[in-house]
């Protein structure tokens, strides 16, 4: 795998259709690729380049700018512990150490079974709920060490598949505009860029 599946390619085209210029769909399409494979493979970047009318190098340039895109496989569950100021003040670093200790790896690393990757992250906009962390971008506010242990156990036991989808899945609800409702005025009057499909 790594090129988009036929179903995902259809979604890709729907996404592209929402932008006055195809290239604007680059980040959403990278998310789509990551949702499919858990990371963004080179082949996927090459395909996205074709889809949005850019070079693969341009896709790489964009992809590598953003922290969420992983160009190598990571754990199925990405645990992001916030250690920024509000959390630091309320024990964020201690929480990170606990997670590291508990999983036996440092942040930045993945457990041998490929289940967990830990990241030491910047502010995740839950500052009043410190300390906090995210698992695959699902929030856990004011979390204690014991709660972390339980959470990890439950994930390992497959009990959290409902509220925590595998890494790469972002929104489980997608925007979809039914036919006839789309205004489609966004590209009207835009100058055409030669060599680039708008």
């Amino acid at each position: 795998m790594s090129r988009l599946t036929a179903d995902n390619e259809k979604i890709a085209h729907e996404i592209i259709g929402r932008y006055p210029r195809k290239r604007s769909a680059m980040i959403p399409l990278l998310h789509l690729a990551q949702e499919q494979d858990g990371y963004v493979a080179n082949d996927a970047m090459a395909q996205i380049a074709e889809l949005v009318g850019s070079t693969p190098a341009e896709v790489l340039g964009t992809c590598s700018f953003y922290e969420m895109f992983k160009r190598e496989p990571v754990g199925k569950y990405l645990i992001n512990v916030c250690t920024n100021i509000s959390c630091q003040l309320m024990g964020g670093e201690e929480l990170l150490h606990h997670v590291e200790h508990r999983l036996g790896i440092h942040h930045g690393a993945t457990t041998a079974d490929g289940m967990f990757t830990i990241e030491d992250v910047e502010c995740i906009a839950a500052c009043t709920e410190a300390p906090c962390l995210q698992v695959n971008y699902r929030y856990f506010h004011k979390i204690t060490n014991d709660e972390v242990d339980t959470l990890i156990d439950e994930i390992r036991a497959g009990k959290r598949t409902d509220d925590i989808p595998p890494h790469g899945t972002l929104a489980k609800v997608r925007q979809h505009v039914p036919a006839g409702h789309w205004a489609g005025r966004g590209g009207e009057g835009l100058p055409v860029i030669p060599g680039q499909a708008n």
């Binding site: 932008y19 604007s24 980040i27 959403p28 998310h31 953003y66 969420m68 895109f69 929104a171 925007q175």
Partner: peptide, 10 residues
């Protein structure tokens, strides 16, 4: 048209 766009960490 109102379109939801999402970032990727930056």
């Amino acid at each position: 048209d109102v379109v939801l766009h999402w970032g990727a960490g930056a």
